[in-house]
């Protein structure tokens, strides 16, 4: 098999995942796109392992071992990621990542978002803060 087929498929899948990570709003959809990117890397690892084990007589099979490790780490990552997303959802009432703007500097005053110093609840004057967030942090 021509090596370009798996390599091109893996780069296309990686860029699809890249688009998903950048364009999606829901945090769980972002996690799905991250899984797509990880799978693209896995396909690359397997294809190059099959190539090198014949062409360079590589008996270590590092590509396959790294693929298995990547799959295990991706499983751990999805567990931790979903736990974080659920914690954020419980605290904020939303899992949309562009509503989580606590550390963002608002373009108007240049100060920290919420314009209320250290820990006091952001009041109605903060334009970027949504209602549910104010309720949740109060």
């Amino acid at each position: 098999m021509h090596l370009a087929y798996p390599a091109v498929l893996s780069s296309l899948l990686f860029c699809t995942g890249l688009y998903g990570v950048l364009a999606r709003r829901n945090a769980i959809l972002v996690l799905m796109s991250v899984e797509l990117m990880l799978n693209a890397v896995n396909l690359n690892l397997v294809a190059f392992d099959v190539w090198l084990s014949k062409a360079a007589r590589d008996t270590l099979h590092s590509g396959q071992a790294l693929t298995l490790f990547t799959i295990a780490i991706a499983a751990a990552e999805i567990g931790i990621g979903l736990a974080i997303v659920l914690a954020v959802y419980r605290g904020r009432g939303t899992s949309d990542i562009d509503k989580l703007r606590d550390t963002a500097e608002s373009p108007d005053d240049g100060g920290p978002d919420g314009s209320a110093p250290d820990g006091s609840a952001p009041d109605a004057g903060a334009e970027a803060v949504t209602d549910e967030k104010a309720e949740a942090t109060a």
């Binding site: 098999m1 021509h2 090596l3 370009a4 798996p6 390599a7 294809a47 190539w51 014949k54 062409a55």
Partner: peptide, 8 residues
């Protein structure tokens, strides 16, 4: 990888 083939 224009001239590379995987030997299956």
């Amino acid at each position: 990888f224009r001239t590379t083939w995987v030997d299956l």
